[in-house]
Design a protein around this nucleic acid. Structure first.
Length: 280
DNA sequence: CTAGGATCCTGTCAGC
DNA sequence: TGCTGACAGGATCCTA
């Protein structure tokens, strides 16, 4: 679930809890969820970086932890207070570790839990100098802010027979969008998700690129679609979906632009939300 | 090379 | 209540 805005929110939110803190030891509860030598996951945290939907935790021992939450990953820091982010679930306020806990990272003043219901996500330890050479990182396309309309349009032309929604979900074409923001950006740009990429005009491509930036910026500003939860209080979940989503999970409700009923269909194997009147 | 579908895994929910 | 299939905020692998 976590798309670029959620991971960026985690990067910013986790900073004050673990940067300059000492990671004493990591314990792997699910082998599939951890790649590399676990004893390398030790040392002080030098900083946090992000590449698309991947979070990088740089350590001062020459190693880095690459965290990819995929569909259901969560990072929950439990110390004097709790900071939880990622896939929203009861785990945010549950006793930890629990049966969805895959990796436990013990710091000098708290514990960082990597939880992941479906086990699609992972933590990978690798040399800090090798992060940018990692196969996944290396093939990521630029984020929308770093891409010119001409480049984006050229990529749509290259994949002219693929559905536009599938194209913008491809991280090697444009980086950061997931199922929510793909639907939101296509709605904002008034483009039907089943249109072939080659049938998107240069002007529409420019608008779509602009809207992709816009929907993700708005989400980051509000703390991600599922706002990181500070569980000192009551687990207030902030909510891009409620505050800003125009179509995602709004099937059956009226379109904010024209009042027509929002429909849910399947495109490229993903649940897809559209206004059939606005999006052509 | 591109495009589309199956697959990884666990949990929940709708519909018998 | 119990079963079954569909589905889920991602990405890869396999096939044509």
């Amino acid at each position: 679930m976590p798309e670029l805005p959620e991971v960026e929110t985690i990067r910013r939110g986790l900073d004050k809890y673990i940067v300059k803190k000492k990671l004493m030891r990591a314990t792997v509860l699910c082998e599939k969820s951890f790649v590399g030598e676990v004893s390398d996951a030790r040392g002080s945290v030098a900083g946090l970086r992000r590449y698309g939907k991947a979070l990088i935790i740089d350590l001062d021992n020459g190693k880095s932890l690459m965290v990819h939450l995929r569909m259901t990953g969560q990072l929950i820091y439990d110390g004097a207070e709790r900071y939880a982010a990622g896939h929203p679930s009861e785990n945010f306020v549950a006793e930890l570790p629990n049966k969805q806990t895959r990796v436990v990272m013990e710091f000098d003043d708290g514990t960082l839990y990597f939880n992941d219901q479906r086990k699609f996500g992972f933590i990978k330890v690798l040399g800090t100098a090798e992060v940018e050479e990692d196969a996944f990182i290396k093939k990521l396309a630029p984020e929308p802010w770093a891409m010119e309309a001409d480049e984006f349009y050229a990529k749509l032309q290259r994949h002219k027979n693929a559905l536009i929604k599938a194209v913008i979900l491809d991280q090697t074409i444009i980086c950061g969008l997931g199922n929510i923001y793909a639907d939101e950006a296509l709605f904002a740009a008034e483009i039907h998700p089943e249109r072939k990429a080659g049938m998107v005009s240069r002007a529409e491509a420019e608008e779509l690129l602009k809207d992709a930036r816009m929907v993700m910026e708005r989400s980051i500003e509000s703390g991600g679609s599922t706002m990181a939860t500070y569980v000192k209080a009551d687990g207030t979940k902030g909510d891009y979906l409620e505050k800003f989503a125009q179509v995602f999970r709004r099937e059956g409700q009226p379109c904010v632009r024209c009042g027509n009923e929002i429909k849910k269909i399947r495109v490229a194997g993903r649940g897809t939300h559209i206004c059939t009147r606005c999006q052509k």
